[in-house]
Amino acid sequence: MADSGQFTGDGESSATTSVSEGTAKSNISRRGFLRGAGITAASTALIDGVQLLHREAAAETIKGNAHVRELGPGPVPVTLNVNGTEHVVQIEPRTTLADALRTHLGMTGTKVVCDHGACSGCTVTLDKVPVNSCMTLAIEVGSRRIGTIEGIAQNGQLHPLQVAFVKHDAMQCGFCTPGMVMSCSALLERNPKPTLADVKKAVSGNLCRCATYPKVFAATLEAAGVAPEKSIS
């Protein structure tokens, strides 16, 4: 099964990466966190680096090392800037960003599919960089601006990328669609004139079991004003 064809090892890895790989602001990931702290009911979050701490949370106990603060295991207040609006949520430190969005903020457009960072169904952006929200702890987001599928349309008007998705029927069951839109909109932000190969790379982490990929490619290229490449006849 290793002979997949998805991994090409070509320079830039999949555009959707977990925070631990994708940004410099944090050096913990959900996996790393769980490995370090152990999975127990009473697990506490050991956070190295005070810049990650929420203002209110900073009032928590400081033990010994001034750079190590202990949160939890109970809920702590965390401020999340989602689509330009600040929300304060009371969440346990182990809460993923996906869970915070879906369960605590009722923003269910973000989907959890594999819960392992393997399918990109839960893609959101942190300061415009796509990340897997199932692999990102809500408490590690800090002040970064979170972009979700609910924020792509503006004032009730679909984004041109979404319009192109509708036009090209770039969806079937629709469960992967929010993640696809997030990956493709982030691509267009950083590369307004992508090639087909660029689009394929941008969604190389996004799995679609209905296999709507060809239409995702066509929609994204059209939204970018790039003519789809020739088809066979």
Binding site: S4, H116, S204, Y213, S231
Partner: peptide
Amino acid sequence: VNPNLEQYKIAGSRDIPELQ
């Protein structure tokens, strides 16, 4: 041994042919 979507491999974007 592969009850997930990283080792149970399904086709992704780079496996897609030109399809007419």
